[in-house]
């Protein structure tokens, strides 16, 4: 990875945003005085958590490929932990879940680490999806068999497979953009997260009509439209950091923000069905890991494959040379 002037601008921009957010919090606090205000407390907690998340994210981005891979591996692990905790599994799923947590998840990220795109793409949808029901059927418990396996497979798909496409962005080979993929990853994460924040802000300020009252009562039409448009404009304004033209950057940002909204809505539907507000309590003010990454989950694979498709990019898909060396005698 190369640290160039553009990277410095992106990092500087992030800090300007965070400082502005903290300044807003301080101003609001002064205005409210000592009166207790849970909404403001939540805003302050959220902003504080943003500082930490931005630091961790940028630090790992600076460390490079393995840093980013390890970070998203942990994020996937924590999100899956929340997902399985809230979705009742049975005694018969114990050993299947052991495989899912301790073998399949690390293996998926190991493939990102060694840049083996071919196996990365099929490890979960083929091998893990075959393994999971086989391991479960060996326990002999047939009660709600399909439902139990579907839940585990779905959790693995959303929390691990989809999310692992984010660090895989660093492996893409885009002609004329070699060594600059960290900025593409930054673009993706920043646009989706800024869209989340802007949808929240616009929704709070001028939200009138509920967009999905049955699923997520806090989401409004105004928040969605204005948030998505503003985030897409931000994406277009960041075109210089990406391999896209300004127009392409706008369309890409529009696609991932809409996908982010849809992902958040789907995960909200699951939470609502389970009767909970948040997936967990790990990130103060935000809820759990899953609450923070729900919008990234669905956007990541779409962004990844659109980039591959339109920009002639790709990976060779083959196993790394040293793996070929090991396999050669067989």
């Amino acid at each position: 990875m190369r640290w160039d002037a553009e990277t410095s601008w992106l990092v500087a921009g992030t800090f300007v945003l965070l400082v502005a957010a903290s300044a807003c919090c301080a101003a609001l606090r002064r205005r409210c005085g000592d009166r207790p205000n849970p909404a403001l407390d939540n805003l302050v907690a959220r902003t504080r958590a943003w500082w930490v998340m931005a630091f961790v994210f940028l630090f790992n981005l600076a460390v490079g490929h393995w840093g980013v891979t390890l970070m998203f591996c942990l994020v996937s692990f924590m999100a899956l932990r929340e997902f399985v905790t809230l979705n009742p599994t049975k005694r018969g799923d114990h050993r299947t879940l052991f495989w899912v947590f301790f073998i399949i998840t690390p293996l998926q990220y190991a493939l990102v680490g060694i840049r083996w795109y071919g196996l990365f793409q099929i490890l979960i949808p083929v091998y893990a999806f075959v393994l999971i029901p086989i391991r479960s059927v060996l326990t002999g418990d047939t009660d709600q068999f399909l439902e139990r396996n579907a839940k585990i497979q779905w959790g693995l798909l959303v929390c691990v497979y989809f999310v692992s496409h984010i660090p895989m962005l660093l492996v893409l080979q885009i002609p004329g953009y070699e060594g600059e993929n960290a900025k593409l990853l930054f673009f993706f994460v920043a646009v989706v997260q800024i869209s989340d924040v802007l949808q929240y802000v616009f929704g709070k300020l001028m939200g009138r009509r509920k967009i999905a009252p049955g699923v997520s009562p806090n989401k409004t039409l105004e928040g969605f439209v204005l948030g998505v448009l503003a985030a897409s404009a931000t994406g277009a304004a960041l075109w210089w950091a990406t391999p896209f033209s300004p127009g392409q950057a706008f369309v890409m940002a529009l696609v991932i923000t809409v996908m982010g909204f849809a992902g958040g809505l789907v995960m909200s539907a699951i939470k609502r069905d389970l009767g909970v507000k948040d997936w967990g309590h790990a990130i103060s003010g935000h809820g759990g890991f899953m609450d923070r990454i729900d919008s990234l989950c669905f956007a990541a694979p779409v962004f990844f494959h659109l980039t591959v498709f339109y920009f002639g990019a790709g990976t060779d898909g083959l196993e790394p040379g040293w793996v070929r060396g090991i396999l050669a005698p067989f």
Binding site: F77, R81, E82, V84, T85, H94, R95, L97, F98, F101
Partner: peptide, 9 residues
């Protein structure tokens, strides 16, 4: 009856 734990909350 199990020896290995899984990491739930």
């Amino acid at each position: 009856g199990e020896v290995l734990p899984i990491p739930l909350l």
